[in-house]
Design a binder for these strands. Sequence first.
RNA 1: GGGCGAGUGGCGGAAUUGGCAGACGCGCAGGCUUCAGGUGCCUGUGUCCGCAAGGACGUGGGGGUUCAAGUCCCCCCUCGCCCACCA
Length: 864
Amino acid sequence: MTETSTSSPETPAFRYNAALANRIEAKWQDRWDAEHTFWTPNPTGALADGFAEVADRRKLYVLDMFPYPSGTGLHVGHPLGYIGTDVYARFMRMRGHNVLHAMGYDAFGLPAEQYAVQTGQHPRATTEANVANMRRQLRALGLGHDPRRSIATTDVDYYRWTQWIFLQLYGAWYDDSQERARPIAELLEELEDGRRNPESEANPDARPWRELDGDTRRAVVDSYRLAYLDEALVNWCPALGTVLANEEVTPEGRSDRGNHPVFRRPLEQWMLRITAYADRLLGDLDLLDWPESIKLMQRNWIGRSVGAEVGFPVEEHTGVDIDVFTTRPDTLFGATYMVLAPEHPLIDQIVPDQWPEDTPFEWRGTFGLDKLPTEAVASYREFAAQKSELERQAEGREKTGVFIGAFANNPTNGWGIPVFIADYVLMGYGTGAIMAVPAHDQRDFEFADEFDLPVAGVVKPTEAWLRDRGLDEDAPADEWPEAYTGDGIGMHSSNDAVSLDGLPMAEAMDRIIGWLEEVGAGEAAVTYKLRDWLFSRQRYWGEPFPMVYDADGVPHALPESMLPVELPEITDFEPRILDEHDTALPEPPLARAEDWVNVELDLGEGMQRYRRETNTMPQWAGSCWYYLRYLDPTNGDAVVDPEVERYWMVGTGAPAAGGTDLYVGGAEHAVLHLLYARFWHKVLYDLGYVSTPEPFHRLFNQGTITAAAFTDERGAYVEAAEVEERDGSWFAAGVEVVRHDGKMGKSLKNAIAPDDIYRDYGADTLRLYEMFMGPLDASRPWSTQDIVGVHKFLQRFWRNVVDEDTGALHVVDVPADDDTRRLLHRTIAKVGHDMAELEFNTAIAALMELNNRLTRVVQDEGSA
RNA sequence: GGGCGAGUGGCGGAAUUGGCAGACGCGCAGGCUUCAGGUGCCUGUGUCCGCAAGGACGUGGGGGUUCAAGUCCCCCCUCGCCCACCA
């Protein structure tokens, strides 16, 4: 490392170098602490001191995505967004806003727990040490946060309220007619006075409330809750010893964290009914000032599809329908077979004992050979369940499946059509069953091709489409080389009561849906890809649920007065790792804390023995609402005081959605954190605890900082700091290595610690460099070599103001000439504009230009 | 396979609305300071031709609109990110 800034005998005593910068920065950081410079007053409550002085200002809430306090501390890639928000917050404060800017720590989670498993150190100890280290590093960066508002999600006083919010979810239901969540007590009233019929899977015969016994009533009510227990197919990760949310599983079927294989298995877990909010989560995106790409990702994740649900009566099973969802009801006449997901519950009911006569050889395929239908089903199920997602990918999209021996009737034309099972139909989407229209759906076409099923064209392709494929105008669909999926005029689609012939797609859909509703065979329907949020984790280092189970295994919510439910002190944090085929239930670490698990409580029915829930909440729980706690961090009576919440989240003249004025963070949270937090916020909004429908009004994604990374001949990363360049090649310890740049971090071994940059240039140079590298939302490569440019700028500016030898100020008040004055005002205008738009790189360039000019002016005048 | 975004000097990047392409910084070259190195300061630096004045070319490639295109339209290429059998 070159000693660019160390004092040498010739260096002027007051030159701006690292040593001087460090002195200046330390002095001001101490003074900010002592004078409470960044304390931001609330309109009321514990932090209200000094509010009168800023009461006439406009509020501004600037928020960062808070960090996980990792053991390795910060590298220079982490604080990019924090510096950006800090510059913006200071600028807006100087412009006369009352600015809230705080920083907390998302401190529950796997790394601390895994470290605890390895070392036996309690996660709280390592977490607190990491938080302290990160606080030190961020303080040295000179960030202007209100320190009183800093929280960690692991603070008992914080997670007490995370538990409280869970109780609100548990104690609420979604009223579809009012399109909002309401307290469960209001549901009970409606059920009891007969305004609402108890419709629920727990009450399959739809018997009226007064006829239900106590257990059924409880089960009915539980089935309405926004937080509910469900035995569902979950993503089970044996290597992590826990289940994962859909959002935490990669497309390759591996864990987002650690990249371990994930398997599907049924388990009873807590679920949150985020699907109830699908429409609002989708629609309210329009209220938000977010990057379109992020909105699009959320739209795709929610995955709203409009179409129809249609019942296909199963032959020889009167009253049994296979319900399918389709986005193309206009092609209903072309449905020539059906496919159920292998896990579909109806299968066992309709599989016959023997194959129907004349069952084509192809339909039975490899799975049905020499087997009875039930055996074929079992055989295919086993095949599908064992196939990992990765294998599915490797096999491409080759269609597999087997005929199950049953037929259903196409309700439009009465055709008896065969029923298959195949893994290209997913249980988790729609109804888990499809009508297959091979002429107009490419997947169905491929399956039909594989199994020699009929292809019936019911939409006339365009002439161009036919011409491109060398087909005659009236070529039958079974001569088409692929499915025709475009718009077109209906054909071969009529029965005694309805005809779609000659109609374009949109009209055909309307007409057939009208007919389906008329005859009771189906109805218009909307489906979502979004699934309910799996909310249980078999881990220690997370928020305990405020739930207990009685002797019958019935869950009971603890009253608010029993919060917080604190994590017990244990010494064995290891999850029980199971073999992937082991069917035993996972055992969370908390289950071993028997003194904690078994409790005697009075929950209104006298003292009784209960068992605590031993799962914990996922890491996303704490980050769902931290922005609310910054507002009122010490409030012991509420999540946040309503007046304080209104002041910061709504303000005056706020946009329709309200929320934080600026939220800066990485795009990697596009569908996880940002969707979960919006969901919780909407629940709190419906229940009257917050006053805006959305939490984050303006979202900005900062880019990532990349850096050169190197791998050796085995492909393993080597420490980038130890690589040297020679004649365009790179060498580590004398061995040639290959360069491929990537996101700075521990895994690529190319992290650069901010402490080193503070030491060599000072924190202000680091801040300035990161803001100058390029647009805040772009990824950019780190180059330590380039830092001298902004360091010299600070040095020159300092020299224009301070005599390097004596330390005396020599400021020129009045610009020397018209050109300089003109440049000064142009610079003021540009900097003001660019700062508000978060375009810091060009603002800095403008200041450099001005400073270059001033340097010449100062020189022309001789020294002042 | 689908969606979104981006391609500008040796490098990072500028260029409100279609209006002098390459601001600002790095690097590089020359000079001043210095015993020397470094620091600091000054000058130059898109490419090609030219001693120079000057000229030609130039924003991934090809075409188009326009008095005028990095910017708008069409086709193609490359890279990045996201989703991926979603009925």
